[in-house]
Computed example of a mutant assay.
Amino acid sequence: MNQITDIIVTSAMGILTILAGIVVQEVKKYLLKKGGKKAVEIAEILAINAVKATEQVADKLDIHGDEKFYYAKNAVTKGLDQYNIHLTQSQLESFIEAAVKQMNDRWKE
């Protein structure tokens, strides 16, 4: 029974990873069309930096899981406000999820 559960969870995570990649690509296309290349680059950089920073301070702040996600999301939102870039919550979450995936992929290497 545990093996079946493991297979289902692994398959679901694979599917969600693929879907997250597709969503990020669509968000990028939309933002490029609407806000320009510079806005997308800034959002990507801010998301990557926020995820890295959150990982570095997570132990000190004793935050885990969803708390880390919201901490990073808040950091990205503040950064985007400085550049007067506004994203929907869905778009913002997509950039953060992509940064987390990129970080996890690099860690596995």
Rank of each mutant, 00 (worst) to 15 (best):
N2T: 14
N2R: 13
N2K: 14
N2S: 15
N2V: 13
T5W: 12
T5S: 15
D6N: 11
I7E: 06
I8T: 11
I8F: 12
I8E: 09
V9S: 11
A12Y: 12
M13T: 12
M13Q: 15
M13E: 15
L16H: 13
L16A: 15
T17M: 07
T17D: 12
I18T: 15
L19G: 06
A20W: 07
A20F: 08
A20H: 06
A20S: 13
I22A: 13
I22K: 05
I22Q: 05
I22N: 08
I22W: 04
Q25S: 13
V27G: 06
Y30T: 09
L31P: 00
L32Q: 04
K33L: 04
K34M: 10
G35H: 11
K37H: 11
K37P: 01
K38C: 12
V40Q: 06
V40N: 08
V40H: 08
E41K: 11
E41R: 10
E41F: 13
I45P: 03
L46F: 08
L46Y: 06
A47G: 04
A47H: 01
I48W: 12
I48L: 14
I48Y: 14
N49D: 11
A50L: 05
A50H: 04
V51L: 01
K52W: 08
K52V: 09
K52T: 12
K52F: 12
A53S: 10
E55G: 10
E55P: 03
Q56V: 15
Q56Y: 15
A58G: 03
D59I: 10
D59C: 10
D59Y: 12
K60V: 09
K60S: 12
D62R: 00
I63H: 08
H64E: 08
G65Q: 10
G65I: 06
D66W: 06
E67A: 15
K68T: 00
F69W: 05
F69K: 04
Y70S: 00
Y71E: 02
Y71T: 05
Y71N: 05
A72Q: 00
A72Y: 00
K73G: 03
V76H: 02
T77S: 11
G79D: 02
L80K: 10
D81A: 13
Q82I: 10
Y83M: 10
Y83F: 15
N84H: 07
I85S: 04
H86A: 06
L87A: 13
S90V: 04
S90D: 01
L92K: 09
L92T: 12
S94F: 07
F95K: 01
I96L: 09
E97N: 05
E97H: 05
A99Q: 00
V100T: 08
M103I: 06
R106A: 02
W107Y: 09
W107I: 01
K108N: 04
E109D: 01
